[in-house]
Protein backbone atom coordinates (compact mmCIF):
# COMPACT_ATOMS: atom_id res chain seq x y z
CA UNK A 1 0.00 0.00 0.00
CA UNK A 2 1.44 3.34 -0.94
CA UNK A 3 2.20 5.75 1.83
CA UNK A 4 -0.11 8.65 2.43
CA UNK A 5 0.82 12.26 2.83
CA UNK A 6 3.60 13.15 5.19
CA UNK A 7 1.52 13.18 8.27
CA UNK A 8 3.60 12.99 11.37
CA UNK A 9 0.83 11.33 13.31
CA UNK A 10 1.39 7.64 13.40
CA UNK A 11 -1.75 5.83 12.30
CA UNK A 12 -3.21 3.61 14.95
CA UNK A 13 -2.17 0.03 14.62
CA UNK A 14 -4.60 -1.85 12.49
CA UNK A 15 -6.40 1.25 11.29
CA UNK A 16 -6.73 1.62 7.59
CA UNK A 17 -4.58 4.26 6.06
CA UNK A 18 -6.31 6.52 3.63
CA UNK A 19 -5.66 5.77 0.03
CA UNK A 20 -4.44 8.66 -2.01
CA UNK A 21 -7.13 9.61 -4.41
CA UNK A 22 -5.10 10.83 -7.29
CA UNK A 23 -7.29 8.94 -9.74
CA UNK A 24 -8.90 11.10 -12.34
CA UNK A 25 -12.43 10.50 -13.50
CA UNK A 26 -11.08 8.91 -16.62
CA UNK A 27 -8.94 6.50 -14.61
CA UNK A 28 -11.94 5.59 -12.54
CA UNK A 29 -13.96 4.90 -15.60
CA UNK A 30 -11.30 2.57 -16.91
CA UNK A 31 -11.00 0.89 -13.55
CA UNK A 32 -14.72 0.27 -13.45
CA UNK A 33 -14.67 -1.07 -16.97
CA UNK A 34 -11.76 -3.36 -16.31
CA UNK A 35 -13.27 -4.70 -13.15
CA UNK A 36 -16.84 -4.50 -14.32
CA UNK A 37 -16.65 -6.38 -17.59
CA UNK A 38 -14.95 -9.50 -16.20
CA UNK A 39 -17.20 -9.36 -13.16
CA UNK A 40 -20.25 -9.13 -15.36
CA UNK A 41 -19.07 -11.98 -17.57
CA UNK A 42 -18.24 -14.06 -14.52
CA UNK A 43 -21.65 -13.54 -13.00
CA UNK A 44 -23.48 -14.06 -16.27
CA UNK A 45 -21.56 -17.11 -17.41
CA UNK A 46 -20.74 -18.82 -14.12
CA UNK A 47 -23.02 -17.75 -11.32
CA UNK A 48 -26.19 -17.34 -13.26
CA UNK A 49 -26.13 -20.91 -14.69
CA UNK A 50 -25.01 -22.21 -11.30
CA UNK A 51 -27.93 -20.50 -9.60
CA UNK A 52 -30.31 -21.78 -12.23
CA UNK A 53 -29.03 -25.28 -11.57
CA UNK A 54 -29.81 -24.82 -7.90
CA UNK A 55 -33.31 -23.60 -8.74
CA UNK A 56 -33.91 -26.47 -11.17
CA UNK A 57 -32.81 -29.00 -8.59
CA UNK A 58 -36.00 -28.17 -6.70
CA UNK A 59 -38.16 -28.69 -9.77
CA UNK A 60 -39.23 -31.22 -12.30
CA UNK A 61 -38.71 -30.51 -15.98
CA UNK A 62 -38.38 -32.74 -19.01
CA UNK A 63 -36.26 -30.21 -20.90
CA UNK A 64 -38.95 -30.15 -23.56
CA UNK A 65 -42.08 -28.57 -22.13
CA UNK A 66 -42.27 -24.76 -22.07
CA UNK A 67 -40.43 -23.17 -19.17
CA UNK A 68 -43.76 -22.09 -17.72
CA UNK A 69 -44.65 -25.72 -17.13
CA UNK A 70 -41.72 -26.43 -14.85
CA UNK A 71 -43.22 -27.60 -11.60
CA UNK A 72 -41.68 -27.14 -8.20
CA UNK A 73 -41.16 -30.34 -6.26
CA UNK A 74 -39.41 -29.13 -3.14
CA UNK A 75 -36.75 -31.50 -1.92
CA UNK A 76 -38.08 -34.49 -3.85
CA UNK A 77 -35.04 -34.72 -6.16
CA UNK A 78 -32.71 -34.66 -3.17
CA UNK A 79 -34.83 -37.24 -1.41
CA UNK A 80 -34.56 -39.46 -4.49
CA UNK A 81 -30.80 -39.22 -4.86
CA UNK A 82 -30.15 -39.65 -1.14
CA UNK A 83 -32.55 -42.53 -0.49
CA UNK A 84 -33.16 -44.38 -3.77
CA UNK A 85 -30.07 -43.71 -5.83
CA UNK A 86 -27.96 -43.69 -2.69
CA UNK A 87 -25.67 -46.49 -3.79
CA UNK A 88 -24.81 -44.46 -6.89
CA UNK A 89 -24.41 -41.22 -4.94
CA UNK A 90 -22.28 -42.53 -2.09
CA UNK A 91 -20.29 -44.76 -4.42
CA UNK A 92 -19.46 -41.71 -6.48
CA UNK A 93 -18.64 -39.58 -3.46
CA UNK A 94 -16.35 -42.28 -2.16
CA UNK A 95 -14.57 -42.47 -5.50
CA UNK A 96 -14.15 -38.69 -5.42
CA UNK A 97 -12.67 -38.95 -1.95
CA UNK A 98 -10.25 -41.63 -3.15
CA UNK A 99 -9.31 -39.31 -5.97
CA UNK A 100 -8.56 -36.42 -3.62
CA UNK A 101 -6.13 -38.59 -1.70
CA UNK A 102 -4.65 -40.15 -4.81
CA UNK A 103 -4.16 -36.96 -6.79
CA UNK A 104 -2.54 -35.38 -3.74
CA UNK A 105 -0.02 -38.21 -3.80
CA UNK A 106 0.42 -37.63 -7.54
CA UNK A 107 1.00 -33.93 -6.97
CA UNK A 108 3.78 -34.78 -4.55
CA UNK A 109 5.30 -37.07 -7.16
CA UNK A 110 4.97 -34.30 -9.72
CA UNK A 111 6.80 -31.96 -7.41
CA UNK A 112 9.56 -34.52 -6.93
CA UNK A 113 9.94 -34.93 -10.68
CA UNK A 114 10.10 -31.19 -11.14
CA UNK A 115 12.72 -30.86 -8.42
CA UNK A 116 14.88 -33.55 -10.01
CA UNK A 117 14.47 -32.23 -13.53
CA UNK A 118 15.27 -28.73 -12.42
CA UNK A 119 18.80 -29.83 -11.62
CA UNK A 120 19.90 -29.48 -15.23
CA UNK A 121 20.63 -33.16 -15.54
CA UNK A 122 21.46 -34.32 -19.00
CA UNK A 123 18.49 -34.75 -21.31
CA UNK A 124 16.18 -32.89 -18.97
CA UNK A 125 14.18 -31.49 -21.87
CA UNK A 126 13.48 -34.98 -23.11
CA UNK A 127 12.25 -36.14 -19.70
CA UNK A 128 10.13 -33.05 -19.36
CA UNK A 129 8.52 -33.66 -22.73
CA UNK A 130 7.84 -37.28 -21.90
CA UNK A 131 6.17 -36.50 -18.59
CA UNK A 132 4.23 -33.59 -20.01
CA UNK A 133 3.14 -35.44 -23.11
CA UNK A 134 -0.05 -36.95 -21.61
CA UNK A 135 -1.33 -33.50 -20.64
CA UNK A 136 -1.45 -32.22 -24.19
CA UNK A 137 -3.20 -35.27 -25.62
CA UNK A 138 -6.86 -34.86 -26.36
CA UNK A 139 -9.40 -36.77 -24.37
CA UNK A 140 -10.27 -38.92 -27.34
CA UNK A 141 -6.68 -40.06 -27.65
CA UNK A 142 -6.30 -40.67 -23.93
CA UNK A 143 -9.46 -42.74 -23.93
CA UNK A 144 -8.30 -44.74 -26.89
CA UNK A 145 -4.84 -45.34 -25.47
CA UNK A 146 -6.08 -46.60 -22.13
CA UNK A 147 -9.12 -48.45 -23.24
CA UNK A 148 -7.95 -50.21 -26.35
CA UNK A 149 -4.23 -50.50 -26.06
CA UNK A 150 -3.55 -50.63 -22.31
CA UNK A 151 -6.54 -51.96 -20.38
CA UNK A 152 -8.30 -54.17 -22.91
CA UNK A 153 -8.66 -57.67 -21.53
CA UNK A 154 -8.24 -59.46 -24.85
CA UNK A 155 -5.55 -57.41 -26.54
CA UNK A 156 -4.28 -54.81 -24.07
CA UNK A 157 -0.63 -54.25 -23.30
CA UNK A 158 -1.10 -54.62 -19.56
CA UNK A 159 -2.62 -58.06 -19.94
CA UNK A 160 0.19 -59.10 -22.24
CA UNK A 161 2.68 -58.58 -19.44
CA UNK A 162 0.36 -59.47 -16.56
CA UNK A 163 1.28 -62.78 -14.93
CA UNK A 164 -1.48 -65.32 -14.57
CA UNK A 165 -5.14 -65.02 -15.58
CA UNK A 166 -6.08 -62.01 -17.69
CA UNK A 167 -7.60 -59.16 -15.73
CA UNK A 168 -10.58 -57.10 -16.84
CA UNK A 169 -9.14 -53.70 -16.00
CA UNK A 170 -12.08 -51.89 -17.55
CA UNK A 171 -15.09 -53.80 -16.36
CA UNK A 172 -14.21 -55.62 -13.14
CA UNK A 173 -16.21 -53.77 -10.54
CA UNK A 174 -15.57 -56.16 -7.66
CA UNK A 175 -14.07 -54.45 -4.66
CA UNK A 176 -10.43 -54.44 -3.66
CA UNK A 177 -11.51 -53.51 -0.17
CA UNK A 178 -14.78 -52.38 1.26
CA UNK A 179 -16.41 -51.41 4.49
CA UNK A 180 -20.00 -51.64 5.60
CA UNK A 181 -22.08 -48.63 6.31
CA UNK A 182 -25.29 -49.21 8.25
CA UNK A 183 -27.45 -47.37 5.72
CA UNK A 184 -25.83 -48.66 2.57
CA UNK A 185 -26.06 -51.94 0.74
CA UNK A 186 -23.88 -53.05 -1.00
CA UNK A 187 -20.86 -51.95 0.98
CA UNK A 188 -18.75 -48.99 -0.02
CA UNK A 189 -15.32 -49.70 -1.39
CA UNK A 190 -12.68 -49.28 -4.03
CA UNK A 191 -13.51 -51.31 -7.11
CA UNK A 192 -10.75 -52.90 -9.13
CA UNK A 193 -11.48 -51.03 -12.32
CA UNK A 194 -11.44 -47.70 -10.50
CA UNK A 195 -8.04 -48.60 -9.09
CA UNK A 196 -6.86 -49.19 -12.64
CA UNK A 197 -8.34 -45.86 -13.67
CA UNK A 198 -6.30 -44.19 -10.96
CA UNK A 199 -3.20 -45.19 -12.87
CA UNK A 200 -4.49 -43.50 -16.00
CA UNK A 201 -5.29 -40.39 -14.01
CA UNK A 202 -1.87 -40.30 -12.41
CA UNK A 203 -0.33 -40.59 -15.84
CA UNK A 204 -1.82 -37.26 -16.74
CA UNK A 205 -1.87 -35.45 -13.44
CA UNK A 206 1.80 -35.93 -12.58
CA UNK A 207 2.97 -34.26 -15.77
CA UNK A 208 0.60 -31.38 -15.27
CA UNK A 209 1.75 -30.65 -11.75
CA UNK A 210 5.38 -31.16 -12.72
CA UNK A 211 5.23 -28.36 -15.26
CA UNK A 212 3.71 -25.98 -12.74
CA UNK A 213 6.46 -26.70 -10.25
CA UNK A 214 9.16 -26.44 -12.91
CA UNK A 215 7.96 -22.94 -13.61
CA UNK A 216 7.90 -22.19 -9.90
CA UNK A 217 11.37 -23.59 -9.31
CA UNK A 218 12.82 -21.37 -12.00
CA UNK A 219 11.59 -18.43 -9.98
CA UNK A 220 13.34 -19.54 -6.78
CA UNK A 221 16.34 -17.36 -6.23
CA UNK A 222 19.45 -19.49 -6.77
CA UNK A 223 21.35 -17.53 -4.15
CA UNK A 224 18.93 -18.77 -1.52
CA UNK A 225 19.89 -22.35 -2.20
CA UNK A 226 23.51 -21.43 -2.31
CA UNK A 227 23.20 -19.75 1.04
CA UNK A 228 21.48 -22.82 2.43
CA UNK A 229 24.25 -24.99 1.11
CA UNK A 230 26.93 -22.77 2.64
CA UNK A 231 25.06 -22.94 5.92
CA UNK A 232 25.46 -26.71 5.77
CA UNK A 233 21.95 -27.77 4.86
CA UNK A 234 21.64 -31.16 3.27
CA UNK A 235 19.46 -31.69 0.22
CA UNK A 236 16.31 -32.43 2.17
CA UNK A 237 16.80 -29.57 4.60
CA UNK A 238 17.40 -27.09 1.86
CA UNK A 239 14.32 -28.28 0.06
CA UNK A 240 12.17 -28.32 3.16
CA UNK A 241 13.39 -25.06 4.70
CA UNK A 242 14.23 -22.96 1.67
CA UNK A 243 12.84 -24.13 -1.63
CA UNK A 244 9.44 -25.39 -0.50
CA UNK A 245 8.46 -22.21 1.38
CA UNK A 246 9.43 -20.05 -1.56
CA UNK A 247 7.17 -22.18 -3.77
CA UNK A 248 4.23 -21.07 -1.71
CA UNK A 249 2.31 -19.32 -4.49
CA UNK A 250 2.56 -22.42 -6.66
CA UNK A 251 1.56 -24.65 -3.77
CA UNK A 252 -1.66 -22.75 -3.35
CA UNK A 253 -2.53 -23.19 -7.01
CA UNK A 254 -1.54 -26.86 -7.01
CA UNK A 255 -3.63 -27.68 -3.95
CA UNK A 256 -6.65 -25.98 -5.48
CA UNK A 257 -6.11 -27.63 -8.85
CA UNK A 258 -5.59 -31.06 -7.31
CA UNK A 259 -8.71 -30.99 -5.19
CA UNK A 260 -10.88 -29.44 -7.88
CA UNK A 261 -9.60 -31.96 -10.44
CA UNK A 262 -10.43 -34.75 -8.02
CA UNK A 263 -13.92 -33.44 -7.34
CA UNK A 264 -14.87 -32.79 -10.92
CA UNK A 265 -13.01 -35.71 -12.52
CA UNK A 266 -14.90 -36.85 -15.53
CA UNK A 267 -13.04 -37.04 -18.80
CA UNK A 268 -10.95 -40.20 -18.60
CA UNK A 269 -13.78 -42.09 -16.93
CA UNK A 270 -16.14 -40.99 -19.68
CA UNK A 271 -13.61 -41.93 -22.32
CA UNK A 272 -13.57 -45.42 -20.84
CA UNK A 273 -17.35 -45.50 -21.13
CA UNK A 274 -18.09 -45.01 -17.43
CA UNK A 275 -17.81 -48.65 -16.44
CA UNK A 276 -19.78 -49.83 -13.41
CA UNK A 277 -17.90 -49.08 -10.22
CA UNK A 278 -16.09 -46.03 -11.57
CA UNK A 279 -18.81 -43.44 -11.22
CA UNK A 280 -17.82 -40.11 -9.75
CA UNK A 281 -20.02 -37.08 -9.23
CA UNK A 282 -19.01 -35.71 -12.61
CA UNK A 283 -20.27 -38.75 -14.49
CA UNK A 284 -23.50 -38.93 -12.47
CA UNK A 285 -24.26 -35.31 -13.32
CA UNK A 286 -23.54 -35.64 -17.02
CA UNK A 287 -25.36 -38.94 -17.32
CA UNK A 288 -28.50 -37.39 -15.88
CA UNK A 289 -28.33 -34.01 -17.57
CA UNK A 290 -26.91 -34.80 -20.97
CA UNK A 291 -27.70 -37.51 -23.40
CA UNK A 292 -30.83 -38.41 -25.20
CA UNK A 293 -32.84 -39.13 -22.11
CA UNK A 294 -32.02 -35.82 -20.41
CA UNK A 295 -35.65 -35.73 -19.43
CA UNK A 296 -34.85 -35.46 -15.76
CA UNK A 297 -33.35 -32.04 -15.41
CA UNK A 298 -34.23 -31.63 -11.76
CA UNK A 299 -32.76 -34.97 -10.79
CA UNK A 300 -29.49 -34.26 -12.60
CA UNK A 301 -29.36 -30.76 -11.17
CA UNK A 302 -29.62 -32.17 -7.66
CA UNK A 303 -26.46 -34.22 -8.32
CA UNK A 304 -24.93 -31.05 -9.74
CA UNK A 305 -25.71 -29.07 -6.63
CA UNK A 306 -24.13 -31.70 -4.38
CA UNK A 307 -20.98 -31.41 -6.50
CA UNK A 308 -21.14 -27.63 -6.53
CA UNK A 309 -21.39 -27.49 -2.75
CA UNK A 310 -18.40 -29.78 -2.35
CA UNK A 311 -16.21 -27.72 -4.68
CA UNK A 312 -17.41 -24.42 -3.29
CA UNK A 313 -17.03 -25.55 0.28
CA UNK A 314 -13.47 -26.55 -0.27
CA UNK A 315 -12.52 -23.41 -2.18
CA UNK A 316 -14.01 -21.06 0.37
CA UNK A 317 -12.46 -22.91 3.27
CA UNK A 318 -9.06 -23.11 1.63
CA UNK A 319 -8.83 -19.62 0.23
CA UNK A 320 -10.08 -18.07 3.44
CA UNK A 321 -7.59 -20.07 5.46
CA UNK A 322 -4.77 -19.28 3.14
CA UNK A 323 -5.26 -15.55 3.09
CA UNK A 324 -5.69 -15.42 6.81
CA UNK A 325 -2.35 -17.16 7.20
CA UNK A 326 -0.57 -14.96 4.70
CA UNK A 327 -1.74 -11.81 6.46
CA UNK A 328 -0.05 -12.91 9.66
Amino acid sequence: MEATAASSVKPRRGARRRRSSTLTGRDRMWLWLMVGIPAFLHIALVWLPASLTVVLSFAEWDNLAPVSEISATGFRNYWIIFTIFETDLFGALFNNLVLVVWLTVCSAIGMLFAYLLDKNIRGTAIYQSIYYFPVVLSLAVVGFIWKSTMFSRDRGLLNAVWPGEPVDFVGDSTKLFSFDLPFLDPALGLSKNFAALLVAMAWRHIGYIMVMYLAGLKAVDASLREAAQIDGCNEWQSFRQVVFPSLRPINVIVVVITVIEALRAYDIIAALNEPRGTDVMGTLVTKSLLGEGSGRVGFGSAYGVVMLLLCLGFIIWYVANHYRESEL
Binding site: G143, A270, A271, L272, N273, E274, T283, T286, K287, L290, G291
Partner: peptide, 11 residues
Protein backbone atom coordinates in the same frame (compact mmCIF):
# COMPACT_ATOMS: atom_id res chain seq x y z
CA UNK B 1 -20.34 -37.49 -23.79
CA UNK B 2 -20.58 -38.37 -22.74
CA UNK B 3 -20.65 -38.51 -22.34
CA UNK B 4 -20.65 -42.56 -24.83
CA UNK B 5 -18.68 -43.06 -24.59
CA UNK B 6 -17.61 -44.73 -27.89
CA UNK B 7 -19.18 -44.39 -26.70
CA UNK B 8 -20.29 -43.50 -25.87
CA UNK B 9 -19.06 -45.12 -27.99
CA UNK B 10 -21.92 -46.08 -25.80
CA UNK B 11 -24.41 -45.93 -28.44
Amino acid sequence: MTKPTESSPKR
